[in-house]
Amino acid sequence: MHATIQKPIEEIVNYIKPGEKVFVVGCNNCAWKCHSGGEEETTAMAERLNRRGVEVVGSTTPGQRGMSLCKLDHTRKVLREDYAEQIKKADSFLVLGCGQGVHTVIDATDGAMVHPGCDTIFGGETVSDTDINEYCSLCGECVIEFTGGLCPMTLCAKSLLNGPCGGAENGKCEVDSERDCGWILIYERLKQLGRLDLLEGYREPKNHAKWSRPRTLKVSPHEATFCSQAGKRTVSNQD
């Protein structure tokens, strides 16, 4: 999921020009889990803006719980069919979701003015109702087969691939004494799994062309094509 946190309300209010009419859109999947743009936060945002003198012409969190704002056909249908009247009056859309969701609203409205209501902070695991942690940096070339499934790109502050720097102290990272050194976590896990052999051998530098942005993915039931500056890579999901 994409972790998001709401921007401070003053910052959001500053985005909106005097007299600008705003429609608020939330996301009933990731932003709901983050309490940054679920149904409750979206309704509340409309009220908070109203209290600060911003004219809100409507708000919605498209779909049932679990439905993502970034599913374009759904969002487009909801906005155009269920909220056609309010949207006509809107000068802009405040989006409580991730950056992908903001773009979805641009697409769904054929290019309306949008305001981001959240900072998108990382892709994370919903560890519990209160904790979302980052375990993958979406690098496009996964190396965690060799690290017991723990990502050195993400859990090591320096994204080192061939083992730790010398800076860890008492198992904690040199950058933050509260946080575990990712490489010590990897080592302890592989040791427990009896697979320290995976740490042997040279790991090549990352192909950062696969981490170039923007990237695209074409998908079908048979195959998928990942397109980056490293070129096109098509992989079958059948054979």
């Binding site: 502050a157 320096k158 691939l161 061939n162 040199e174 950058v175 790991r203 950062h208």
Partner: peptide
């Protein structure tokens, strides 16, 4: 060397590069 992290220095907001590690 790998180098100390930017976070320890006097330009904490710098982008840490670490394109390569010290072994590479």
């Amino acid at each position: 060397l790998t180098g100390d992290h930017t976070n320890l220095g006097d330009h904490k907001e710098a982008k840490p590069v670490f394109d390569l590690d010290s072994v590479q």
